[in-house]
């Protein structure tokens, strides 16, 4: 569904991505793990057209989308839940969800998706009129995911959805991700929480300072020595 080939991203003199090749097949969860500063967010931003791709190609459902504006990606069903949630704190919860469906015209389907989001996140439904900025961190993450679902994603990309959340809530979030996947959603998940991500994923990539150093099925990476040492702690 998504094919990235030899992707390079520069910020001024910083070479953040140094030739990344990866693939996300339909109906799978693929994860990209790596330490802080490895270039995980840059990969997603470049896919969405928020960071400039200096070299390489990005294909989505067979269409070359490299260099197209972000609106185009969104209209094609390429949706990102950004790092740090980035909800609109000055808008109500309901308005945030509504903005998720900004480009859509299929009223009936929008309502169906809205009900699905309420089902997944009953707490959002109780807080529709509240300013999004007054939500707790966990609720804000739920809102960010709910808002993305309102965009009718074909491929849902999530950038560290568990960042800064309490362990119990992290568990909730991962359960939700699995639940969304069961409905047939293709997911590209970025995490520093490597264990949870690899357990949930069909396939994983390990990113180190702009280069993919390892890849394989999630279960295999979980027991890989290098991954264990670097990302899972050495206690197994």
């Amino acid at each position: 569904m998504l094919k990235i080939n030899d992707l390079h991203v520069h910020y001024g003199g910083i070479h953040a991505l140094n030739g990344i090749t990866l693939e996300v097949p339909e109906n799978k969860i693929v994860t990209l793990i790596g330490a802080n500063g490895a270039g995980k967010s840059s990969t997603l931003k470049s896919i969405m057209g928020l960071a400039k791709t200096s070299h390489g190609t990005i294909q989505f459902n067979g269409e070359e989308i490299t260099g197209k504006p972000t609106t185009h990606m969104v209209s094609q069903g390429l949706i990102l839940v950004p790092e740090g949630r980035r909800i609109f704190s000055n808008l109500t919860v309901e308005e945030n969800l509504f903005l998720g469906s900004y480009l859509r015209k299929d009223k009936a389907e929008i309502n169906k998706d809205l009900n699905w989001v309420y089902e997944l996140f009953p707490r959002l439904k109780e807080r529709l009129w509240q300013m999004a900025g007054t939500l707790s961190g966990g609720e804000q993450q739920m809102l960010a995911v709910g808002r993305a679902l309102m965009s009718k994603p074909k491929l849902l990309m999530m950038d560290e959805p568990s960042l800064g959340l309490a362990p119990l809530i992290v568990k909730d979030i991962f359960n939700i991700i699995k639940e969304i996947h069961r409905k047939g959603m293709t997911i590209l998940l970025i995490e520093q929480n490597a264990k949870a991500a690899l357990e949930a994923a069909d396939y994983g990539y390990v990113l180190e300072t702009g280069i993919i150093t390892l890849e394989g099925p999630g279960k295999e990476l979980l027991v890989n020595d290098q991954v264990q040492r670097a990302y899972l702690g050495d206690h197994k």
Binding site: T70, T71, V74, S75, R86, F88, L91, L99, Y102, S151
Partner: peptide
């Protein structure tokens, strides 16, 4: 209102 808060997040809404 969304754009006044966060350009990139607004772009991600399309």
């Amino acid at each position: 209102r969304a754009v006044s808060k966060d350009y990139d997040a607004a772009k991600l809404m399309g």
